Simulated scan of single mutants.
Amino acid sequence: MNAPLRSSDGDGAAHVSLAELLALRARVGKASLPQQASRASRSGQQSSRLYGRGMDYAESRVYQGGDDVRRLDWRLTARSGKLHTKLFQEEREGRLLIVVDGHASMRFGTRVRFKSVQAARAAAWAAWYAIKAGERVGLMGFGAHDELLAPRAGPRGALAACGALADWDANDAASGAEPLSQVLQNVGRVLRGASRVLLITDGACSDEASRRHLVELARQARLGVLAVVDPLETALTPTGRYPLEHDGERIEWIVGSERQQQALPQLLGAGHARLLALTKATGVACRTVDTTEDPFDAVAALLGLRGRA
């Protein structure tokens, strides 16, 4: 079998297609959503709107004895001639922080698209899915792009995420080695009330120190890990001659014996194997998606989970 071990240079294969990321919104519109659990404690069998001292305005009503005079709605009072009080709804809105790996190892693909492109597609789908569920969406990059987009509500949050993903891909920076343990610590520092975290990575940056930080982060938020892989990293390599190309240099990899068939996936898939071992040991929910698959089901499963798997 002769096949080049690289993705084509077409838009959406080796590079992120912003149009595709935006188009995912239509598909999310047809998806069913899991019932969301409130972060606030409740008693009894009926859920109810809580009015308190939060900052989210709910409505105004006629002033009642005992109401806080600092909450008077002066505009409505002036229009109606009767005192009105502003009521504020306790914030129950969820917040999703999507964390995307931008290391050089993600710029690889032998089937359909690069891992970096698949990661962007999964992140965009998660963003559209979250805003449909009424959550705010934030985005954090690491590796080549150490940037953070604060959580935003509504379509603007998803649009900002999609735009950032496309910009990061188009303006590839030198990617330093950033261990996953450090990334997880950084995520813990910038959660800012995020109730869920979706980490998208190929696992190449995973290290043993990540174990403790995975556990700590899972205690702070509902954590899910999406492992993005290339088929060559997880399956035996068929026998044949494989031309490899990197930075203009081309070599030929010959696969003949069973040992040679196992060598390439063991080498390329080492990071993925470490990531799976870490998530299994810590009980953190993890799903794997390769570059040929639609990430729809894997992302939906992670966002629909409660706590740990």
Rank of each mutant, 00 (worst) to 15 (best):
D290N: 12
K132N: 11
S257Q: 09
K132A: 04
F114I: 00
V228Q: 01
L198H: 06
R49H: 12
V225L: 13
G134H: 06
M140S: 05
E208Q: 13
V225W: 13
P151Y: 08
A174D: 13
G109H: 10
A298V: 07
Y242E: 14
W253K: 10
A40I: 05
Q266W: 13
P155H: 13
S206E: 06
S47A: 14
V289T: 01
P4W: 12
Q89N: 01
A161F: 07
R70W: 07
A300H: 09
K82I: 12
L199M: 08
E216D: 11
A78V: 03
A218N: 09
P179C: 08
W168R: 02
P231D: 11
H272T: 14
Q45E: 13
V117L: 04
E245V: 15
D67Y: 04
G44P: 03
G283F: 03
L236C: 02
A177T: 11
I200T: 05
A285Y: 09
T77S: 12
L148Q: 07
G44S: 06
L97F: 09
A285P: 10
Y51T: 04
R121W: 01
T239Y: 00
I251H: 13
L165Y: 05
Q64P: 00
R136P: 02
L267I: 11
Q260K: 04
L180E: 09
R241N: 11
G271I: 00
A227R: 13
L180R: 04
A37M: 12
V255W: 10
A170M: 03
A144C: 05
E233H: 08
L303T: 02
G224P: 14
F108R: 10
P243C: 08
A281Y: 03
G94E: 11
L72D: 04
A273Q: 14
V112E: 14
A273P: 06
D290E: 03
A14Y: 03
L72E: 05
E20H: 07
W168L: 07
Q220Y: 10
K115R: 14
L87F: 05
R189G: 07
G66R: 06
A119K: 10
D202S: 09
R25Y: 01
I254R: 15
A204V: 11
Y51E: 06
R222V: 15
A153E: 11
L50Q: 15
D67H: 07
Y51A: 05
S17Q: 02
R156S: 09
R222P: 00
E135H: 12
A19M: 07
P238R: 01
G134I: 07
A209Q: 09
T282C: 02
A285K: 13
S38T: 13
V215P: 00
M55C: 00
E293H: 08
R95I: 00
V112N: 12
W125A: 09
G134F: 07
A13R: 14
V255Q: 10
H272E: 14
G65W: 11
R42S: 15
G65R: 10
A104V: 15
L226F: 02
A144S: 06
